[in-house]
């Protein structure tokens, strides 16, 4: 059941992205920026939390989930240490992902070479 929910929620979030790509010709880079920012805003107004509760990884693996982690971390930071937490909390919550992206990204780029598209 948990897997089915993740599949459905994750799939639907991607469908929204696909509609944006086909209808507006937004480039993938813009889609990513929009989705992260949307995740932050939706979390702030309390919409994303229930989606995460329902969809699990289906909501946290897509990019809005990254925004969710940032926003939730920022608010948690504020709870713990006041205004300073707004600056510390977000990145702290997403630190694993960011660091992994830098390190694995660097390693993959160094180890592999691009190939001609088929």
């Amino acid at each position: 059941m948990e897997y089915l929910k993740a599949f459905l929620v994750g799939g639907l979030i991607c469908v929204i992205g696909q509609i944006l790509i086909d209808k507006t010709r937004l480039t993938p880079a813009r889609i990513l920026v929009c989705f992260v920012t949307a995740g932050v805003i939706l979390t702030a107004i309390g919409v994303y939390e229930p989606i995460v509760k329902f969809g699990g990884a289906g909501a946290t693996v897509p990019l809005p989930g990254f925004g969710y982690a940032l926003a939730k971390g920022a608010m948690k930071g504020v709870d713990e240490m006041g205004a300073l937490g707004a600056f510390v909390g977000g990145v702290r919550a997403a630190a694993g992902g960011i660091t992994a992206a830098v390190v694995f990204g660097y390693l993959a780029a160094v180890l592999f070479n691009p190939r001609m598209k088929r």
């Binding site: 994750g10 799939g11 979030i13 991607c14 469908v15 929204i16 992205g17 696909q18 944006l20 790509i21 993938p28 880079a29 889609i31 990513l32 989705f35 693996v61 897509p62 990019l63 989930g65 990254f66 992902g97 992206a101 830098v102 694995f104 990204g105 660097y106 993959a108 780029a109 160094v110 592999f112 070479n113 691009p114």
Partner: peptide, 25 residues
């Protein structure tokens, strides 16, 4: 084939990091 299905998940974020870095090595 996957379009946004492969762009929007965090794996797509990784793809967007590695592909330009590798290309411009």
């Amino acid at each position: 084939y996957g379009g946004a299905g492969s762009v929007v998940p965090i794996t797509g974020f990784a793809n967007s990091i590695v592909s330009p870095a590798m290309e411009f090595k």
